[in-house]
Amino acid sequence: MKTPTIKYNPCQILILCLLLSLISCKKKDLLYQDLPAIYINKELMTGSRDSVSYSFAEKENNRLLDTIFIPVRISGTPASGTRLVPLAANPGNSTAIPEQHYTIVKTTVNVGAYTAKVPVVVRRIADLKNRQVRIYLRIEPSAEFPQLISNTKTPNTTNGNPLNIYTNVFLIKLSDQILKPDTWDLSGSWFKYFFGAYSAVKYKFIIDVTGRSIWPPYARYGENAPTSDQMTIYYSKLVTALYEYEKKNGPMLDENGSQVTFPKL
């Protein structure tokens, strides 16, 4: 059987292509609108982006309160009016007592703004000497921000895959005790490079010998961060003080019974 063939006139094909290309140029208005939402902007945080350990023991003795700022960012278009940031503590998980250990200051996203910072005021209460309390912050849906974002992602600039995924909650661990800095063990940390493995006994020794109680993230970033030469001097003071201690008292043992040592550099 002979297969039937359709013969096209090349002129017709050319005219058809021209018509199609003209249609493709037509402007089309997007019809898209999402519900307003807001999330904790962890891109602006350094160190551990899901939690922060705050200890008044590392601050000046006369500091009785301090403020931790939580950066937030809206999703969607800016509004023509101010909108209250629905940041709140999750009472189910939090052990800190509102208005006693902390206060979340009411904050709005201004007209036309995309971002805001919510101040969380923390207070030096006597019981923090003996225990650590927790403030689990979360974004709650509100009339102005009805959409709840559970995770935020940073896309990889090369392939678009998520580089980082952040939850939309944030934990503040509050105490008046010596606490392990969150960034001690992270990659690039000068804590780990200069001081080695963490122990509470070692950290207290470090604070006593160096006279430095306030340490920035990674011991190297942020305002008043020590320089490399300063860290080297801290290291020298520590190994010298530990050498003198051991001459008089024998090995210094930490809370786990392990000998306090510093890495050989």
């Binding site: 320089t227 490399s228 030469d229 080297t232 001097i233 290291y235 020298s236 190994v239 010298t240």
Partner: peptide, 15 residues
Amino acid sequence: GFPYEATPIFEGALL
């Protein structure tokens, strides 16, 4: 001392 900055500093005595 093994300073990286322009001003020499001796970090301490060898033990």
